[in-house]
Design a protein around this nucleic acid. Structure first.
Lengths: 328, 328
DNA sequence: CGGAAAAATGCACACGCGATCATTGATTTA
DNA sequence: TAAATCAATGATCGCGTGTGCATTTTTCCG
């Protein structure tokens, strides 16, 4: 048993045929006789032969590799997205090359360069905005680029995003119908475009209704940041409603309200989140929130990967309100 | 601007040198004059040249690809592991080929076959037990295999696992010191080896102390399963302590106890979990639990990848008790 | 049975790169 | 100055595979 992998050459020798026959045996639609095919398969089986997909992709110009770039992989929202995406890719016979952008929070350019070197067919960006130069390079090299929850002012990139402004609108309406008079909007310090859209849309709507909005932002997008926001906002100000642009923030905020500051939810304070992560439905929270459809998002991403000539560059996935127990 | 990627040949032509010079420019330690290097880099820059790492790995016999196989990627525990692992791999210049085993829950063999085809240097299995035949094939082909939280009776595989039995011991001791007389052990229906070890070690210890243990198991490893366990166990039986082999189960169980069945925690009922996922520390839960060190686990995995001749095949990472508010 | 069409098969090339080898030119040493 | 050492360079080969092309074998039909 030689070190390393078995090559088609060795299989051919063992089966007593040419190397071409081996190649054809493993190429669907190629012309091989039953007899040869059987011999080849037998030899391959015994030797433990496996096609080298690197060499295959070399002249195919199809690596079957899809680059996935994202940070915060352990946050429920991103994790769920990655979970669904990786399943979908596998089903389509595509491989998922995962790059964690944790180290390069703001500058994901070098990561995408790396994906170029691996000749990724397409690149999906879960978070972090790629510089314009990178986008240009993707187009020049024929690499499809798909951005999730990122709205750029370009027509040459695929973007799949939830309807943030409508979601924020729904949240605003709900807080108004709950009778809130003094509300806060909470976002993280890392102002991602999605968070910004939600916050501004919410504020605009509230202002249009003649209600002032106190904005708070700080820290990473985490439970702790939400908790901190709650402790600070509820300390002196008489807030009776809050829209947290992320469920993770909302849950922290809620705990600060109930356990830290002794407020009753929803009697004293109504809270609305965004995302509908699994934890939002847990019995201790029962958070009213704006649900993104993870399945729909993933579906759009996958179809954008599939279609050779995507008609629609910008795909907006509708959101819906999930009414639970944190709004009066 | 031609379709597809730029090759070293084109760069050489543009720079007016041989292709060898281009190759050498991008090969550390090769012998190139400053002048040529400058010319090549300039041409490469203008053309947007990038080394093709597929072709590179073809004669290198080093693909730099590490296969990662796992299911339940959106569960907090696995997600955290994947997060740390992908960061560590990237830092070492290794690529992470992610395969979601959700579809092939029990049979991950075809996934590993796929990784063979991509000539993965090593394979990390986050969950799911690979068949013995696959392990043999890994060894035959020189592919390192690393199993996390999986103890197999083989000396030719790398295994990194938390000290489950000691953790279960700690849990048992704590429940005893809390004065529990009638305890339950809760695990999921998908009896993973790690869960089994925890449950049996716990039961043994309790029995040794003369305390009976009611075992419950069912459903996937999720919050909902824990909730269901709580509702069923607390309905008629007078349980005053519970060890849930996973934090996710523990949190569901806790909500069932407090909100579903009106028990006070820890006054009426003490609960201990396992893993120390982020949610366990949230203010609404404050779960006492056995902490696995994610960092230590990942560190061991990465060193197992690095070392060319790993001395230790079986690495056990110590666990520790995190005392919060759910034990009297 | 004979000829034509179809299927099967082997050869050789291409994919993009690293590495080896021989050659050339520059630099140092005796 | 001549000889010797060394850095730099280009041509060539090999990595493992798919595929076009020419050739051989089989099948089909009259």
């Amino acid at each position: 048993m030689a070190r390393g992998f078995v090559t088609a050459e060795e299989v051919a020798k063992k089966a007593g045929v040419s190397r071409s026959a081996v190649s054809r045996t493993f190429t669907p639609g190629a012309s091989v006789s039953k007899a040869v095919r059987r011999k080849v398969l037998k030899a391959a089986q015994e030797l433990g032969y496996r096609v080298n997909r690197l060499a295959q992709g070399l002249n195919n110009e199809r690596s079957n590799l899809i680059g996935v770039v994202g940070a915060n992989l352990s946050s429920p929202f991103i994790a769920k997205q990655l979970d669904l995406l990786s399943i979908g890719l596998l089903r389509r016979g595509l491989q998922c090359l995962l790059l964690n952008a944790a180290d390069a929070r703001k500058d994901i350019a070098p990561l995408i360069e790396l994906l170029f070197e691996f000749r990724a067919q397409a690149i999906v960006v879960l978070s972090g905005e790629p510089p314009a130069s990178i986008i240009d390079e993707c187009i020049a090299n024929g690499v499809r680029l798909i951005l999730i929850n990122q709205r750029l002012d370009r027509t040459d990139t695929n973007m799949v995003l939830s309807d943030d402004s409508h979601g924020a609108d729904l949240a605003a309406m709900r807080l108004i119908s709950a009778g809130c008079r003094k509300v806060a909007v909470v976002s993280s310090g890392s102002q991602t475009p999605a968070q910004l859209r939600r916050a501004t849309a919410f504020t605009q709507r509230m202002n249009a209704e003649g209600i002032d909005v106190i904005a708070w932002s700080g820290g990473p997008t985490s439970y702790d940041s939400g908790y901190q926001a709650g402790m600070e906002l509820l300390d002196d100000k008489a807030i009776d409603g809050a829209f947290c642009v992320t469920d993770l923030l909302a849950l922290g905020f809620m705990d600060a309200a109930r356990l830290g500051m002794g407020r009753r939810v929803p009697e004293d304070l109504s809270i609305v989140g965004f995302d509908d992560i699994p934890q939002a439905g847990w019995k201790s929270y029962q958070l009213t929130t704006i649900a993104q459809s993870f399945d729909a998002l993933t579906e759009k991403v996958l179809t954008a990967l599939d279609s050779d000539q995507p008609e629609t560059r910008l795909q907006v996935v509708p959101v819906s309100m999930v009414e639970r127990m944190t709004t009066r």
